[in-house]
C-alpha cells in the first residue's frame, strides 16, 4: 500500500512541529517565536486537510444500506 503524498507531508510537518520549538526557538521569548511557528503550523495543517477533502467525490453513489442494524455481518 502506497503512502499518499498528503499523509507523508503531514508526518514531516508533525516532526517539525515537535522539533523546531524545542531545538530552534527555545530561547526566543517573543510572539515571533514558538507562538508564530505553531500558528503557521495550524494553518498549513488546515490547508492540507481541507484541500484533500475538497477532492472527495461526494456524488459517487453510496453502497447499499444494511437491512437492519447489525443485520449483515462481514
Amino acid at each position: 500500500m502506497r503512502l499518499p503524498l498528503w499523509v507523508a507531508v503531514l508526518l514531516v510537518l508533525l516532526v517539525i512541529g515537535y522539533a523546531v520549538p524545542y531545538l530552534l526557538l527555545s530561547d526566543v521569548e517573543a510572539w515571533s517565536g514558538a507562538f508564530l511557528f505553531w500558528i503557521v503550523f495550524g494553518i498549513v495543517v488546515w490547508i492540507i486537510l481541507v484541500g484533500r477533502v475538497a477532492r472527495w467525490d461526494v456524488h459517487a453513489p453510496p453502497p447499499p444500506r444494511a437491512p437492519e442494524p447489525g443485520g449483515r455481518r462481514p
Binding site: 499523509v7 503531514l10 510537518l13 508533525l14 512541529g17 515537535y18 520549538p21 517565536g33 514558538a34 507562538f35 505553531w38 500558528i39 503550523f41 495550524g42 495543517v45 492540507i48 486537510l49 484533500r52 477533502v53
Partner: peptide, 20 residues
C-alpha cells in the same frame, strides 16, 4: 505558556485521522 498552543495544535493535526 505557549506549549499549550502546540499541544492543542498537535491534536488538531490528529483530525487528519478523520480523512482516513
Amino acid at each position: 505558556g505557549v506549549g499549550a498552543l502546540g499541544f492543542e495544535l498537535i491534536y488538531f493535526a490528529g483530525l487528519a485521522l478523520l480523512l482516513i
